Simulated assay, not measured.
Amino acid sequence: MPMGCPFLSLRFSLFLSLSFATSSSPFSFFKLQSPSSSIPKATSSDLLSLLASPSHSSSVNPSVADELKSCFKFLVPFTPINTRSSSDFKSPSSRRSLLKSLRDEQNELIWWPPEPVLELARLAFDSGGDPDSIHRALDPTVMPVPDVEGSKEDKCELTRTPYGRRFISQELNSYLEYLFKLIVERGPDVGLKVSLNRYDLFHGHLFIATETGRLGILFHAKEYPLYDKQVFPYYLGYCQKDSNVTYDDSINLRNILWLAPLPSNSTQGWIAPGVLLVLDAHPGGIVYRDLIPEYVNVVRTIYEDDLGNVVVDVNYLNVGDSQPDYQIFIC
């Protein structure tokens, strides 16, 4: 989560805000207690396994799997590959069928992204999850992060660093932009109305999954809800000032996950296509109960470092003055 104050991380400032909230607050600081049962606690590894190949999915406790799947809201249909026929999937581009609609084409770009994205996914996998495999794909040119919708005046630091970079491959940068736009377009299909602005959706965290080496991005929407004494009585730092994001049930859908296709470790093929989905963290559900840290359950945050090794933050910022001008900054 980016910085909302030059000196305090949002994670810490939210902890302080929640700690000193009055007991009359309508939101519980603590998680709902798990029902007494023999169902084991879900893990991030379980989550990622269910979004991989059938063989990965079968390793998850069936009861945990059923509960987790009930919290999956796919923005693009999920099409796992049967690993027994994974050799048929050596060249994703060669399998592109005659697409019948724009929606078909959008789905295909998630399942089987352009070659530069596949190459990056393969680099992450073949390196054993080494973040430097991704860093080496970045253009060394450093770009200062300009003012974003009045952020400078509010003393708001949206990014981890005051400068950013981009990938050497312009096709990679364009694909990142595509992901942000598709989330906004498809979000209403699953009940998530989201906007590209500095209070709502503007960033994601690129990671490499610890156990599988799979490349992914965890996006966070609803980043800075409006302070409200009755509805959301929590201060989140300078970046919250003048927020236009109302705190409501849509906060349950703020975690959006993209996973690149999963490479095979025995061939140059692929054992699972790409995935794009929203994780429903409604109170009482398994995502809320097992994957959301207690001190941020009010804002339903899944942390990227629970999913794997965090490599960079991907920011899509409106740096325009009179006209919108969205640009990628990788920090």
Rank of each mutant, 00 (worst) to 15 (best):
R84P: 00
S85I: 11
S28G: 12
S37E: 00
K69Q: 15
A52K: 05
S49R: 15
R84H: 02
F29Y: 03
L68Q: 07
S70R: 04
L32T: 04
R84G: 13
S44Q: 10
P62V: 02
K73G: 00
P62L: 04
D46A: 15
S59W: 02
H56C: 04
L32P: 00
P77T: 01
S55W: 13
D66G: 02
V64H: 08
S59Q: 15
P62G: 07
F78E: 00
T79V: 05
A42S: 11
T83K: 08
F74R: 04
F72K: 11
L48A: 10
S34H: 06
T79K: 09
V60Q: 14
S45N: 12
A52F: 04
S49H: 15
V64N: 03
L47R: 10
F29E: 02
S34R: 15
L47H: 13
P77F: 01
L75K: 10
S55C: 03
A42I: 08
V76N: 01
T83C: 01
K41T: 06
S59P: 10
P40S: 00
S59F: 09
R84T: 10
Q33W: 01
F78Y: 05
L51Y: 03
L48W: 06
L50K: 13
P35C: 03
L48E: 12
K69V: 07
S28K: 12
E67V: 00
S49L: 13
S45I: 10
S59K: 14
N61C: 12
P77K: 00
H56T: 04
S37L: 09
S59M: 11
A52Q: 13
S63N: 13
S58L: 12
L75E: 00
L68W: 05
F27E: 06
D66H: 13
E67K: 12
K41L: 12
L68C: 02
F72T: 05
P54H: 09
A52H: 07
V76W: 01
P54Y: 12
L47Y: 11
V64Q: 05
D46Y: 10
P35W: 09
S70C: 01
E67A: 14
L51N: 06
E67Q: 13
S59D: 12
S57Q: 14
S85T: 07
K31A: 12
P62I: 04
V60Y: 11
T83N: 03
P54L: 09
I81W: 10
L48T: 08
F78L: 14
A65C: 03
F78M: 02
Q33P: 00
S55E: 13
D46N: 15
S57I: 00
K73F: 06
S63A: 14
P77L: 05
S49K: 15
P80V: 06
I81Y: 08
F29H: 05
P54R: 03
S85Y: 03
S44D: 08
T83F: 05
P54E: 08
F27D: 11
S28Q: 11
F30P: 01
S53M: 02
S28Y: 09
